[in-house]
Every structure is written in C-alpha cells, then in structure tokens.
Design a binder for these strands. Structure first.
Lengths: 314, 314
DNA sequence: TTGTACGCGTTATCAC
DNA sequence: GTGATAACGCGTACAA
C-alpha cells in the first residue's frame, strides 16, 4: 500500500506538500503540483481515508435513520438507498442503517419517514442531519416536488378530456400529502372545476373498498388522481370488478413510479419520483453540511416525471 | 470524547492494559480487569473504531456488490439490506454499495446476483467475500433453502387436494432455480405423480400470457407452484381473466413473500424467505471470514416459511 | 510557498 | 501479567 510518504519521497518533497496537493491545491505552485501529481500517478496512490478520518475526528460514516416501520417499507426505498450509497461512495463515505431513534456514531444523519411529532427528537440531535421528505419546521430537506407532480397529473387528465377528476389521497396530516392535494386543487381551480377528494390509508385493498362502496358517485369519463401507486392499484382493481372500461371510461394516475406501476395490469400512468437522484442529492447535502460544520443547507425539490402508460387514454 | 488514555489514567494502569481488557480479556488478571471495567463504565468509554481500524490496516467497511441490473432489482433486497446493515452495525462496521464489478476498498465483500459466468471474476478477487445465493463452485454462501421451500409448497398443494400440480419456473440455468424445481419434482415423485414444468422469464405479464395461451391444458382442480411471487401474480391475473375460481378450482403458491404477496388480490399463499435474517447471517459470515484471514466458511441454508393465505384452499 | 514536529486513538512488539 | 515504545497514515500549527 503506497502512502503519503512514499509519494513525498518519489517527488522529493515533504509529506505536507503532497497532502496539500490533495486537499488545498491552490496553496502549492503549479510546477511542484505537477511533479507531485505525476508521482501519485506512477505509484497509483490513493489516500487512506481511515487515517484521514482519524486525524479529522471523523468516522467517514453517515447514518440513514428510517423512522417508519420497516414492515411498511415501500420498495422505492431501494432506489433511494442506492442513490444515497452512490453519493456517499463518491466521497469515500460509508453507510449505516438505523431503524430506531437510538442513533450514535457517524458524522451525520439522513433521516427519512419523519412525521410531525418527531420534531422534539430532531431538535436534540447533536450532529448534522438532513431530511428526506418535506417539513415545515425549517429543517433542511430534499423531496420530490409533490405539488408540481399532481399539477402535472391533473393537467394531463384534463388534456385527455376526462370530465370528472377525483383525487384519492393518503389520510395523513403531513406536508407531502398537503402538497399533493394542493397541486390537484390548484389545477382544478384554474379550470373552474370543483375538487372532489377522498382520503384513505395507503393500502390497495382500502382503495378498492372505497371505490366500490362509492361506485355510483363515479360516472364514466372520470379520472382518478391517486396519491400513491398502491392506491392506484386498488382503484384499478375496483374498476375492473365493476367492469368499468380502463382507460376509455375511467383513467387512473398513480404516484411513485417504482415497481408497482410496472407490475400492475394495465400498467399505470404515474408520476415517477427520481429516487436515485434524490438519494444522491441527500448524500451530497449531508456531506457538505458535515464539511461546513452544520451550516444550513435549505430545501430542494426535485421535479418528478409523468410516465404515460396504459391506465389513461392515449 | 473519552479515550483509552483517560480510562488508563482513571484506573491507574497503562493504555495497553485497557486495550487488553477490551480485546484479550484473558490476558489480564480478574482484579485488574474489574478496575478497568469500572473505569470504562464511569467514563462511558466507547472504543474509537476508526483508530482501531487504522492500527489494523482495516477500513471497517464491507462492500455489498450487486451484480444484477438495478432496474430489475426486486423489492426484497430492502430486507436483505437491512439485515446486512444490522449485522454489520453490531460490530461497528459500515456498508458501501457497488453495482458494478469495479470494486476497491473495504475489508471484504458480500456479493449478490452473481451468475455462473461471474466465476472468473470472483477468482481474481483479493479480499474475502461471501455470496448471497446458491452456487456450486465451492464459494461460501448463504441462501434460502430453495429445495425445501418448494417441497413444502408442493406438499401443501397436495394436502389441499389439488389433483394437478403444475410448476411455473424462472427460465434461468441457475442453482436456485434447479433447487426449486428439484423440491417440486421430488415431492411429486414421492406420490408417483408426473411433474409438469413451464419456464418463463421472471415477469408477471409473461406468466399471464403463458397461462392464457395454455389455458385448455389446465383443468379445474389445479395448483400452480410458482418460482416467484411475480410469476404468481401473473398467474392469478390470467385465471381471473379466464373467470377461473380461486382458490376453489385453482390454487396458486408463490415464492419470496416480500411485498408483492400482500399487494396481490387475493393475497398470495407463498414461501416466505427470511431475508432479514439471511442478511444478518451474511454480515456475520463475512466479518468472521475477515477476522479469520479469509478462512473458508462453508454453506448455510435458511429454512423458509409457508404463508397460508387466500390463493389456496383453506 | 514549503517544511518540521507533533497529535489523532489504538494496537503490536518486546522488554521487564 | 504488565508496561514503555513505536507505528498505523494523515493533518494542523507553527516556523522557516
């Protein structure tokens, strides 16, 4: 294993010069820099991040804290996780998972699944953290642009000439849901239409029951804007049981675009979250926050993508 | 942050004695040990694993290498990942993900999604590794007992008095599939019944097409043993489209028991893999292998569990 | 701009 | 059985 000293010898400079070439390149003259860089090339030198971490009183580990129940974990966490791992890996950081709130170790946290009543717990954290998911308490976060997503969905339903646009939401008093509903409501209002909103817990079977028990309220030519693909799948099943025609008489638009939309039949038109990118950005944000000693990072909303598929008219 | 030296001072011993109390307790007399342990308690001392790693020329990081395409990644990876992370965390190890074969860094690898033609690549690895998933080249691995799983499934179908038992397999020439088929075949042979096997790629829509285009071959009173829940979902849809009665005339048993079985309607009877435990064992195995300098660890098969649900007679 | 000396927290080695 | 010393590889503080 080649070390800083090896490079220093080869380049006939001190270790510090080599260290500076790596961490503060501007502090060293271009000529010396070239020589050192060549030496690093020839020796195939890679900094030992463990030693670096020790000197910096760091661990080079970021913890991912998942506050939701693991059993309800959506498959889309996979993509998020891969994104995070990818972003961390680029900076030679590693990942640890924590499913409860007993966190310790690590240089910072990425926290997901937090709800409104987790605020007190967050406030007592003594290390930098960023959240995955909207919040309105001023914590740094990254999320899909939920409002924009449902705006796009609702507008698309209108473009496809569905006369009635119904929203099936998730029955949780959380910002992400408010934002999704707001996107739907705004777009309808813009066209002088009156919102119709139903809310249930995020389970396909509950969605199925909801639609069936309210079936007479839904005339043909209705499009359902669903706050999740899970719900959308349930709506599809209900319509099929009622022998409704998809997509001619009934349209369905989901939200998430991970796995479930593909397994569904018909495949779902959905608002796809770019979870991988989101994960990468989360990693970059927490790493930057760590490096900056905990400085505020702000909020970032990622634009989702409309996937046009078989559950709406084409 | 309290260090080894702090404890040493408090206990009036040398740092080495403290270190030994932690790593080689037998080498220190019981009396001294007590004193040191009390000092550690009072100072709430926790070893700095980064410093330890540096001294050991380690990174305290294990890499998870996923050789499958990330887009086809099944949601069950989540549970595996959580298990791995849990197992690593107990020993203060962290995780890095790698989705291609360009691995570097880390003290060892957990490799998943490997296929037969990855053997040459594995052989050139210069760090300890263990595999998730059966192989027949002598590499250390952990997997669900696939054969046993389908034995249980097939026997259950027989117990429920389905007259015809059909196997819908995954069209891959890999040990896990051979094992699953073997479990099915063995159990049928034991009852002097002739196996009927179909194979397709692991997609629900392909399963659906397969069943529909062969519909006349399946008389009522048939149970489909499926090599995955994805396939099972497709089979369910096909039967429903043909207006077959589930579970009276047609039974379906899946494999995996992660997410999809719950979202399906009817919910699937399935062979549930204990992926979390599997992940924990993978972590323990690779950690032990690292500690033992790469010593052979052997093979471990984990017993799966039959989940009785709505897609078979009760 | 560049180099020297030392510290980060732990462990291995070799004395006693 | 226990302790002093050096070493792991890198970074900071200060001096040159």
């Amino acid at each position: 294993m080649t070390t800083l000293s090896d490079v220093a010898k080869k380049a006939s400079v001190s270790k510090m010069t080599v260290s500076r070439v790596i961490n503060h390149p501007q502090q060293v003259t271009p000529e010396l820099r070239k020589i050192v860089e060549q030496a690093m090339e020839q020796l195939n030198y890679h900094p030992n991040s463990v030693a670096s971490a020790l000197a910096h009183h760091r661990t080079n580990v970021v913890k991912l804290v998942i506050l939701e129940d693991i059993d309800t974990t959506e498959p889309y966490y996979m993509n998020l996780l891969f994104g995070i791992a990818s972003g961390l890996g680029k900076k030679h950081y590693a990942l640890q998972l924590a499913t409860d709130s007993e966190v310790s170790g690590g240089d910072g946290y990425i926290i997901t699944g937090g709800r409104a009543n987790d605020a007190k717990w967050l406030d007592q954290l003594n290390k930098p953290f960023v959240l995955f998911g909207e919040n309105r308490y001023g914590y740094d976060f990254i999320d899909t642009d939920n409002k924009l997503g449902e705006q796009i969905a609702t507008q698309y339903a209108l473009d496809k000439n569905y006369q009635s646009i119904v929203f099936i939401g998730i029955d949780e008093k959380e910002p992400f849901e408010y934002s999704r509903e707001a996107g739907y409501i705004n777009t309808l209002q813009k066209h002088n239409m009156i919102p119709k909103i139903f809310r249930i817990q995020n389970h396909s079977s509950l969605a199925e029951k909801l639609i069936i028990s309210n079936w007479k309220k839904f005339a043909p030519n209705t499009c359902f804007i669903c706050a999740s693909d899970r719900i959308a799948v349930g709506v599809v099943r209900a319509i099929q049981r009622k022998n409704g025609n998809i997509p001619r008489d009934f349209g369905i638009i989901g939200f998430d675009g991970v796995f479930l939309d593909q397994v569904s039949n018909p495949k779902l038109t959905t608002i796809k979250q770019n979870l991988f990118k989101l994960g990468e950005l989360l990693a970059e944000m927490i790493l930057q926050k760590i490096q900056q000693g905990g400085a505020q990072q702000g909020e970032v909303l990622i634009e989702p993508e409309l996937i046009k598929s078989e559950s709406t008219r084409n």
